[in-house]
Amino acid sequence: MKTLNNKKKYIHLLPVLVIMLFSSCIYEIDYDGDLPEDRFVVTALLEEGSPMSFTVFHSAVPGLYYDYEDDWDDDDGDSGPHWYNLNEYNSFADSSYISVFVNGELKEAAMQTDKAPVKFDYIPKHGDDMLVRIENTKYKTVEQRLKFDMTPLQIDSFNISYQIVSSDNCFVVYLEINDDGGNNYYMLDADFISPSSLMNPKILYESHPEVYFSNNNGMMYSVDDEDKINRFCVFTNEKFKGRKYTLKLAFKQDYYYNPDNSAEEHVFEVRKIDANAYNYLYSLGNYMDAWGMSMNPVTIQDAFTDAYGFISIKKSYKKAVDLSALISGNPFVLH
């Protein structure tokens, strides 16, 4: 219905398009003024007691990335490259050197090669004052200082069940967060729910309304809750600071989604994250969900001045889920 609405409303644009087609022309202009140099792109959430891993990418000047019209075998003497600037294969910032300092002392350093994540043996501890430095001759060095002193995540109640909600088989999550009153940011994640289901749950109960979908700007998905999304499942405690927040969500089971079946157990994770991670994910979600004509772009909030992304800390509450046991019985119908 919404799509129909928009289509019909754009019908008045037809005369404008006709005028433009009759009289339009396209020409090229240089665009090399103040473009920033290519930069590191990194997103990492580190947690005390868990191994650290980084994958570093890089940005490039804007432009389209494959010349479909240029044939590999043509006679223009140009044997390639036919890929311009950036693609998902060359976006890795290999040969980048990642150093981890703890309390001013170099603990470990490694180089990223062959697009593989850089994994460290050092396990962060509570109270660590860590500096992560990423270097590469092609890009500006990026540094992030992290203090592993995040207050604990307090979950009063947590339950996952398998139910039928509005004729859909769903994983229903019941969650009570006891907020400690600070400026807190939260995130949900689950490795057995498809990304599309994760971002678009049905809210069955929320003790403080409009918290979970507060990052929905009323853009494309604004008609009702069914269409609202929270792409990275992040939310703030602005409306329940120092109080208990109860949330009951139903995530549709996606039969086409095939999680790692080799794992007997899967994990549903509630995270406490810092402002840098929240701001990036919140704005990136808005960027990815923005839709429509004559739209101003979303500016993504990075934690760095000379790089894109964030390196942040988190505290996790992990609920192990035996998926086969959970869905073996018939789901009961939720009324």
Binding site: L35, V41, V42, A60, V61, P62, N85, L86, M288
Partner: peptide
């Protein structure tokens, strides 16, 4: 106008 591009690391 975009000033830079990257592949979504997420």
């Amino acid at each position: 106008v975009p000033i830079a591009s990257y592949y979504n690391p997420m």
